[in-house]
């Protein structure tokens, strides 16, 4: 038999995720200006991290897997930020 995770952890993870979903849904109905977007993204990132850590067992995995999990996101940030360095400096944003 392999060592397995305590079921409680999975249940807690799921409850946390559902609560985060409720939070993001509710915040959308309050006008917070730019903060709406920031809150939505922050919650989405938190959900992603929670899923990766507990459902995908990144917690307790080797550093190599941590690196592999982060690499894709890092490269996506390179793609987005350098492309925006063009679009945000063109002078035709509203």
């Amino acid at each position: 038999m392999e060592k397995v995770v305590d079921p409680k952890i999975y249940f807690r993870t799921a409850i946390a995720l559902l609560l985060l979903l409720a939070a993001t849904w509710m915040i959308a109905y309050i006008n917070l200006g730019l903060f709406n977007l920031i809150a939505a993204l922050a919650i989405a990132i938190t959900k992603a991290i929670v899923i990766a850590l507990f459902f995908m067992h990144i917690k307790g995995s080797s550093r190599l897997l941590h690196l592999a999990a982060i690499a894709g996101v890092m490269w996506l940030l390179i793609l987005i930020s350098l492309t925006l360095s063009d679009f945000l400096t063109r002078g035709w944003t509203q």
């Binding site: 490269w75 390179i78 350098l82 360095s85 063009d86 679009f87 400096t89 063109r90 002078g91």
Partner: peptide
């Protein structure tokens, strides 16, 4: 190698600022 692609686009309508960065 991932940070330099914009140098293929110096004469496209990419912004001059981005051109300098790339």
């Amino acid at each position: 190698g991932f940070l330099v692609w914009g140098h293929h686009m110096f004469v496209s309508s990419q912004s001059v600022y981005a051109g300098m960065v790339f």
